[in-house]
Nucleic acid binder design. Structure first.
Length: 594
DNA sequence: CCTAAAAGCGCG
DNA sequence: AAAGCGCGCTTTTAGG
């Protein structure tokens, strides 16, 4: 049974930043619409709790416009629903799926939930906006319009839900699409919870890292002592007393006039330059070393320095916001604080409090394993059974007389196959890999060919890749000159690499969603010592999750994480010979996890 | 002057 | 030895 939650008719229009004062709940079952009920906002959490308790929570699915609006509210009231249908997230999947003819999917939204509001709820305190305007324009005949926002009503959302469910049921793969809708919606719940709980972040530890590397916190607009010192040493070593070390162009010129043959200031180029110019001019080595150290410090200071701490860490918690399906492939994006780029160097600031523990889990070689499952390549599946997949490939190569007998080579070749590498070592090793796993490699090549001619592909559960732009098609038509021809071929290949990777990366993202959903479900239903567990998911990064909870729950968390990995694969693919092993570490500190 | 793009580095 | 996929963020630089 679905229960649609939308704004009550008379409360739908509110000042920007505010929420409707009342909501309406409409039940929706196979036999049609049921009761309508009005709930004041402050009673919403209690209402959900009551209904879930009465109906055995698992039979209820809450349908709403956008978890980003309701989850903060509900969590503040101490409630997080079991299951949801996120009409915005599902609409995005269906709208894209509809654009690919082969999907045979017919869907037209009844209300637009995708166009972003210019000011999401919570960014502008309405009371202050109103007060400011009143004092400024008190005597004016022209009262400025107070910015308004209209929330969809329950009645509107019910229409949309009906349309979405009908589109899914009428599609050629309703079972898969249903799972995708459920998993994506649960993602919305989990993202809301993660934002609410935050990652435990020890400010004192982080400050110690900064001080040790950079010196004491500098004043406003000043650079830390260690950076200033290094910059001086770089200028001296290059013989350019005025070079601005922060300007790549300036630094490049200075390096070149000091006799270094480099084309850019990129890290890898400096490293390879140093490798090619050994011993003799040991001073040049020193320059590269200084520059690399400066870059490292500069990055730490600007991306994860004191300003970052002030802005993102409150009461020893880091609160990033996640964007479910924010990446075309279905991966999550994150905004705020660079939550998906936490450098290894500062991870020791993620420290559990007294009596608490972090369970950090990392799924091994997810994308190749996903490829094995979705292409139904038995040899690739077996290569990864009970061992490191790349090692398994190397061992198989050894046994069958292939040139691919080393783990490092197997890894480069397989990654290249999924990314579309054609040159270099990866391109060279590929034919050997194809001989060993024709089914899997053929699958990725098929996806690439579709993209090269401007077609669209879908993931296993049915997320569809976008069509190329009008510019792309125009470029394919225009082959009047040799240069235009080259540009067309290059754009075609680039889009082929995108679709090739889309199917694997996107299906891996679906696996991760199911993995997390199962973990969440088990954490909520497992009873320990007569009480529900207190551990929660607090962090997610593509193929890695973090749970935070009481120490005594660690063992159970580990078990849940492992089981869920394999169950996620079965949920998506059914019984498959592909294993999904997970590295799990229970620790008080994130830096110890890897 | 402000904004958008580029350069560079972080993550998977 | 440094390419082949997907991102976010900061700083500098180029363009209107």
């Amino acid at each position: 049974m679905y229960i649609v939650l939308g704004a009550a008719e008379d409360s739908a229009q509110v000042a920007t930043g505010a929420l409707p004062a009342a909501w309406e709940a409409v039940t929706f079952t196979d036999s049609g619409f049921g009761t309508h009920r009005r709930i004041p906002t402050e009673r919403l959490g209690a209402f959900i709790t009551e209904v879930e308790a009465r109906n055995h929570s698992k039979t209820i699915r809450w349908a709403w416009a956008d978890a980003r609006v309701l989850m903060p509210l509900l969590l503040d009231q101490g409630v997080s629903p079991f299951r949801a249908h996120d009409l915005r997230l599902v609409q995005r999947i269906l709208v894209t799926a509809e654009t690919r003819a082969q999907n045979n999917l017919s869907f037209t939204p009844t209300i637009d939930l995708l166009t972003e509001d210019d000011a999401p709820a919570g960014t502008l305190p309405p009371a202050q906006v109103a007060a400011g305007q009143d004092s400024l324009f008190e005597d004016s005949l022209f009262q400025p319009a107070r910015p308004q926002r209209t929330f969809p009503t329950a009645v509107q959302l019910t229409e949309e839900l009906k349309t979405q469910l009908a589109a899914i049921e009428a599609s050629p793969q309703p079972k898969r699409l249903r799972l995708l809708a459920a998993a994506e919606s649960t993602g919305g719940l989990i993202a809301g919870e993660m934002k609410f709980y935050g990652i435990p972040w020890n400010r004192a530890i982080h400050e110690r890292i900064l001080t040790e590397a950079l010196g004491p916190r500098p004043g406003l607009y000043e650079k830390p002592y260690e950076m200033v010192k290094l910059a001086g040493e770089i200028r001296q070593a290059l013989g350019s007393p005025k070079v601005n070390v922060d300007s790549p162009a300036d630094l490049l010129k200075a390096m070149q006039s000091a006799g270094m043959r480099v084309e850019s200031t990129r890290k890898w180029e400096l490293v390879s330059w140093a490798d090619e110019n050994p011993r003799l001019k040991s001073q040049r080595h020193a320059v590269v070393d200084l520059i690399l150290r400066y870059k490292k410090l500069s990055r730490l200071f600007s991306a994860n320095g004191w300003n970052w701490l002030d802005e993102w860490v409150k009461d020893n918690r880091f609160y990033p916001a996640y964007e479910v399906g924010g990446v075309v492939t279905g991966r999550w994006g994150a905004h705020g604080g660079g939550a998906m780029q936490i450098p290894k160097d500062v991870r020791s600031a993620v420290q559990a409090e007294e009596g608490m523990i972090l369970t950090v889990a990392d799924a091994s070689q997810v994308e190749p394993r996903i490829l094995a499952a979705m292409s139904a390549d038995p040899k690739l599946a077996i290569a990864g059974r009970d061992r490191d997949l790349y090692l398994g490939i190397a061992e198989l190569g050894e046994r069958t007389g292939s040139a691919l007998t080393e783990r490092a080579h197997a890894k480069i070749a397989l990654l290249g196959a999924m990314y579309g590498a054609t040159t270099g070592e990866s391109g060279r090793l590929m034919p050997h890999l194809k001989k060993m796993f024709p089914q899997a490699i053929g699958f990725t090549e098929q996806a690439a060919r579709i993209g090269e001619r401007g077609g669209q592909v879908t993931t296993y559960l049915g997320r569809t890749s976008p069509a190329p732009s009008a510019d792309w098609f125009e470029r394919q038509r225009n082959r009047s000159t040799a240069e235009a021809e080259r540009a067309a071929v290059s754009a075609s290949r680039a889009w082929g690499r995108f679709t090739r990777n889309f199917v694997v990366q996107g299906t891996a993202a679906e696996w991760a969603l199911c993995w997390m959903s199962l973990i969440r479900q088990k954490l909520r239903t497992t009873v320990m010592f007569g009480k529900p567990m207190r551990s929660h998911l607090v962090y997610f990064l593509h193929d890695e999750i973090m749970i935070y909870g009481p120490e005594r729950e660690a063992q159970t968390c580990t078990k849940i994480v492992r089981e869920s990995a394999q169950q996620a694969a079965e949920l998506i693919f059914g019984p498959v010979p592909v294993q999904f092993p997970v590295t799990v570490v229970s620790t008080d500190n994130y830096a110890k996890a890897k």
